[in-house]
Design a protein around this nucleic acid. Structure first.
Lengths: 200, 200
DNA sequence: CGGTTTGTTATACAATCGTCCAATAAGTCG
DNA sequence: CGACTTATTGGACGATTGTATAACAAACCG
């Protein structure tokens, strides 16, 4: 057996600590200055250990992206759940959550940039990105459908909302001074109103 | 005198050839594998020459971004000019042009990624990005104003359209298989219709 | 306890990084 | 032509990169 149940807990904790160290280094140093050694130092272990737990630095970045994505997904799900039963409230909570801390955070941008820079070269990472994109869009389609957007417009509506949210989020991270989360939220909500009004 | 007029033409050609080589390397190799040596080899010159014409590799990347931005801006201006006098046609041409080749091109994404990864660390590059963003938004505000969008809604409308176009463009580059430029165009146009209808 | 697997470190490695410098080629001007 | 500025090269520099490996420590099982 490679990993008995009673044993797996420790290595998994190590893996997680390395992923979290990777997040911190990406946030603090940026994508270009993030290296195996910097991550290992941040985690308080030797550099060789990274290659013992991951197939390489790219795999660690990919898993860090996946973990960050999981964090964002959970956070948005909580926001939707806390919004109550009204479909419009739930949809609004989803986009509002995308612009609030800790999701719209310049520190997180470095993780996305590090990941994006691997997409063109690595097919498996491109696949991972597509899976993330499709999942995000699917959740949005659910929320939109509950608001009465007809099925034949669901796809394009979800693509549009995703793009708008991503674009606002990106600019919020790149130039925090241009507009604030509240303004981004107001813009996105007006877009949602237009979609639902024209669709219903 | 440092650079007489009759002399400047040759070095400027060299500068441009290095910038174009930087574009090609970024497109072919990606942001992570782009180095001074790779760029110099692509341009057919020695590596040392890059530091003779630019203050460093970051400066070269910044100028490559500026050049690419100029290219995109010109292309969109041409598209708007070719659209004729009708304000709605001009606005539509602007967004349609953003999704057509050669602007929506995975090859160009590497240039943006390389540039974005410098934004957080280098204040002067953050300033360059803000200038680019403001210029894009200002052009959009002009086109929207001509379509009758009232002045007090101009800012948020332009921010929204910019975000939507950027988000669609980004996804078009990252996952070309998810939707095509025509679909992106249709989504963006419906957004424009909603803005103009509600605003006028 | 002894044998085996696993966690972990330290180090070595070859490659590549950006930058700098001395030397040479080429062009320009008095 | 001679003085001078610029263009360009090739090589060296130290730092850093990702990864592989050998050794040591620790945990586990029979």
């Amino acid at each position: 057996m490679k990993a008995p149940a009673y044993r797996r807990s420790v290595p998994d904790a190590r893996r997680r600590s390395l992923i979290e160290a990777c997040m911190r280094v990406l946030a603090r140093e940026g994508a270009t200055r993030t290296s195996v050694r910097a991550i290992a130092a941040e985690a308080g272990v030797s550099a060789g250990l990274v290659n013992h737990y991951f197939e390489g630095v790219d795999a660690l970045v990919a898993e860090t992206y996946a973990e960050t994505d999981r964090l964002v997904t959970d956070r948005l799900a909580e926001a939707v759940a806390a919004a109550g039963p009204d479909p419009r409230d739930r949809l609004a909570a989803f986009v509002t959550g995308s612009f609030a801390a800790p999701i719209a955070n310049p520190d997180l941008l470095a993780t996305w940039i590090a990941f994006w820079s691997l997409v063109s070269a690595r097919p498996e990472i491109a696949a991972q990105h597509e899976a993330h994109y499709c999942a995000f869009r699917a959740r949005l389609e659910e929320l939109l459908a509950a608001c009465g957007v007809p099925a034949d417009r669901l796809r394009s509506a979800a693509i549009g909302v995703t793009a708008l949210v991503d674009g606002l989020w990106l600019e919020l991270c790149l130039s925090p001074g241009q507009f604030d989360p509240a303004e981004a939220d107001a813009i996105a909500r007006r877009f949602l109103d237009a979609i639902i009004a024209s669709g219903g």
